[in-house]
Computed example of a mutant assay.
Amino acid sequence: MTSAYPWHLHPNSDETFIGMEGIVIIETYQERYELTPGSSITIPRNVPHRTKPKGDRSVNLTVERANIETHYMEEEQ
């Protein structure tokens, strides 16, 4: 990841992020997480979130349903 991903949610799937390299910042409207290599977090379905690298680049593995739906949100509420 080299740039931010916009606010969005998935109505039909949880989304699990596993940190591989660098630090991935994952934000919900209530919390901010810094995912480091070897750590993981699951964002439940229907929870608005966005991701971005801390620094120039980060790598994460994302686990989700094969038929995941993505709904993009307005800017931060």
Score class of each variant (00 low, 15 high):
Ser3Ile: 07
Ser3Asp: 09
Ser3Ala: 13
Ala4Cys: 04
Ala4Asn: 04
Tyr5Lys: 02
Tyr5Pro: 02
Pro6Glu: 07
Pro6Lys: 13
His8Pro: 14
His8Cys: 13
His10Trp: 09
Pro11Tyr: 15
Asn12Phe: 09
Asn12Cys: 09
Ser13Pro: 13
Ser13His: 09
Ser13Phe: 13
Asp14Arg: 03
Asp14Gly: 09
Glu15Ser: 04
Glu15Trp: 07
Thr16Lys: 04
Phe17Gln: 00
Ile18Met: 10
Ile18His: 06
Gly19Trp: 00
Gly19Arg: 00
Met20Ser: 06
Met20Pro: 01
Met20Thr: 10
Glu21Val: 00
Glu21Asp: 08
Gly22Leu: 12
Gly22Cys: 06
Ile23Pro: 00
Ile23Phe: 03
Ile23Met: 05
Val24Phe: 03
Ile26Glu: 02
Ile26Tyr: 01
Glu27Gly: 05
Glu27His: 08
Thr28Glu: 07
Gln30Thr: 15
Glu31Val: 04
Glu31Cys: 02
Arg32Lys: 14
Glu34Trp: 01
Leu35Lys: 00
Leu35Ile: 14
Thr36Gln: 13
Thr36Asp: 06
Thr36His: 11
Ser39Cys: 06
Ser39Asp: 09
Ser40Met: 14
Ile41Leu: 11
Thr42Trp: 08
Thr42Lys: 07
Ile43Ser: 06
Ile43Tyr: 00
Ile43Trp: 03
Ile43Pro: 01
Ile43Met: 05
Pro44Leu: 14
Pro44Ser: 14
Asn46Pro: 02
Val47Asp: 00
Val47Met: 08
His49Thr: 01
His49Cys: 02
Arg50Tyr: 06
Arg50Asn: 03
Thr51Trp: 03
Thr51Ile: 11
Pro53Leu: 02
Pro53Ser: 04
Lys54His: 11
Lys54Asn: 09
Gly55Ala: 04
Gly55Asp: 06
Ser58Ala: 15
Ser58Val: 05
Ser58His: 03
Ser58Phe: 03
Ser58Ile: 02
Ser58Leu: 04
Val59His: 10
Val59Pro: 07
Asn60Asp: 08
Asn60Cys: 15
Leu61Asn: 10
Leu61Arg: 08
Thr62Asn: 09
Val63Asp: 01
Glu64Gln: 12
Arg65Gln: 13
Arg65Asn: 12
Ala66Ser: 10
Asn67Gly: 10
Glu69Lys: 14
Glu69Arg: 12
Glu69Tyr: 11
Glu69Gly: 05
Glu69Cys: 01
Thr70Ile: 10
Tyr72Ser: 06
Met73Lys: 05
Met73Asn: 08
Glu74Trp: 00
Glu74Arg: 09
Glu75Asn: 13
Glu76Phe: 08
Glu76Leu: 11
Gln77Ala: 09
Gln77Glu: 13
